[in-house]
Structure formats: C-alpha cells, structure tokens
Write a protein that binds this DNA or RNA. Structure first.
Ligand SMILES: [Mn+2]
Ligand SMILES: [Mn+2]
Ligand SMILES: [Zn+2]
Ligand SMILES: [Zn+2]
Lengths: 135, 135
DNA sequence: ACGTACATGAGAACCATTATCAGTTACCTC
DNA sequence: GAGGTAACTGATAATGGTTCTCATGTACGT
C-alpha cells in the first residue's frame, strides 16, 4: 500500500498553472480571480477562467496564498509567507503589509477562553489609506 | 427649506417590516437573509424575499444590525448594540458574544500608524465552539 | 513513443443579491 | 372619514462571482 501521505503528489507543470503562479508571485497586493484572468489575457496569455479558479484554489490549499473577502464579497488572493499573520491593506491601491504580532494572537485566545469557547480561530484585517495614496 | 437631517423620516409601519424586525429581535445569533425569509414562511408569515433584503439593508443603515460575511460568502445579520464592538461566534450554533475591548482597538490603530496608514478601520472576528456545543 | 491519469476550457448551472415595475398601502391633509 | 401620494411590496428578471460538466488535450512515468 502507499505511504501515509498518499494522494498529495506534485501537480503537473503546465503553461496555465505557471502563468497564474508567476502573476501572483509578481503581484504585490490582493487580487481577484477575475482580475488574474483578465490581466493574463491582456498579456496575451490565454487561460480559461475555470482553470484560474482551480489553480488559485490549489495554491490556497497548499498554503501558498492567503485570501480575504472584499466588501463586494469577491474573494481576493495574495502570495503570503507561510506562518500565521494578518494584513494591513490599503483600500485604494491594495498595497499590503503582513502583520506578525503575538499581541493580537493572545488577545483573541484570551477573549475566547474567558467565555469558554474552544477550538478557536480568528480573522483580523486592518484597512486604511497608505502613505503613498494619502499624497 | 428642510432641516439639516432631511430625507431621514420614519419608515412606514408595515406588517412585513414588523415581522422582520421581530424575528431579528428574538434571534440570538447571526442569520442570513434567506433564512429569515424561510423562517418567516415556516411561521406562516409571507414576506417577499426582496422585501426581506430591503428591510435588512435599512436596519443595517440605521445601525440596528451588524453584519458579518460567512465562509460561504453569504452575509449574516444580527441585532447588536450601537457602539463599536466585535464578535465571538460559535461556529456550531451561532451563539454570539459581543466583545467590547479597547485593547484591540488601540492595537489596530497602533499597527496602522506604525506603517503610515490613515483613515483606518478594522474587522475582527473570533470563532470557536461554545461551552454548550463542546458538550 | 505510449498510455493514462490528470488538466484544461467553453459553456451551463448555481446561488446570493439586486433591479424592475406594476400594483398596494400607510399615513398625512383637509 | 375620504382622498392623494409617496413609500412599500413582491413576482420576476437580471446580475455577477463561483463552481460544475464533460469532451478534449497533455505532462510525464514507463
Ligand atoms: Mn492571528
Ligand atoms: Mn474594533
Ligand atoms: Zn495605497
Ligand atoms: Zn454553540
């Protein structure tokens, strides 16, 4: 029988997957699947929309990407560091700062424990206008 | 001419608006518009789905309701206190605790200021399993 | 080079939400 | 209490992001 971690083999190297990965590696802020699709198209790289969604989902599953939900309820993706952190996002240009801060982690755990909640996780986003966009 | 706060007159008292308001007043956790609609229908109270959405939107605008976005990306509504706070939500039963804590407020502002961001707001949710649901 | 399991993509399906618009009604005025 | 009107309602269509379908294509181990 196969080893414990079966089913998790290396994904195929395809033109499409590479194009999506490259675009996200180069893009500094959060970006939607639809926008990834049209940016690729503008660059002359045809990738089906369904494939864009599939690639993004796989990269999220693999921990390569973080996601946030925009006010319009569309999902935005960004290449992020692997360890737990939160985001400070410019709502004008999308510039994003990763925030690694144990302070807010212990705060969240403390709040949950104080009310007897178990199996806790949290979602923290800070949004504002970055220095460059404020002029 | 009309006074400064023109256009904000009292909404009409209708059977439908009352039904939606009553349901949210009685409901302890967050709930979706679709679920409001079907709960009313189950109770024999016919209210059009469009009207449910309209009433909820108006109550949000009036500060009577808070909203969060579920993982499924659908919007959930809850009757909440007027002042700024965050939520500790049981992901099993939806039971919700309002968290008023200046600690996380100043943390968010501090993080933003440290990176030169202005006009800051934030989104903070803590999710877990409440004592009752943990058995 | 072959075979096949995996990947692709055009289009349909899905689903929450919003827009239309003709008919209804709360409520102000007389 | 009757009338007028702006607000409200709801069946239905439209929207838009996301997922599904399935016939076709292809990366890669052999
Ligand atoms: Mn955290
Ligand atoms: Mn806060
Ligand atoms: Zn900016
Ligand atoms: Zn619970």
């Amino acid at each position: 029988m196969s080893p414990a971690g079966a089913g998790r083999r290396t994904p195929r190297r395809t033109r499409q997957r590479q194009a999506v990965a490259d675009l996200l590696a180069a893009h500094p802020g959060f970006i939607s699947a639809q926008r990834v699709h049209s940016l690729l198209a503008e660059g002359g790289i045809e990738v089906g929309l369904a494939t864009v969604y599939r690639c993004l989902a796989q990269m999220v599953a693999g921990g390569e990407l973080d996601t946030i939900v925009a006010e319009s309820a569309e999902v935005l993706y960004r290449r992020c560091s692997a360890d737990h952190h939160h985001h400070l996002v410019c709502r004008r240009c999308g510039t994003t700062v990763e925030v690694h801060d144990p302070q807010v982690e212990s705060w969240a755990d403390g709040v949950a424990r104080a009310h007897g909640f178990a199996d806790v996780n949290h979602r923290v986003e800070v949004m504002g206008v970055c220095r460059a966009c404020a002029l």
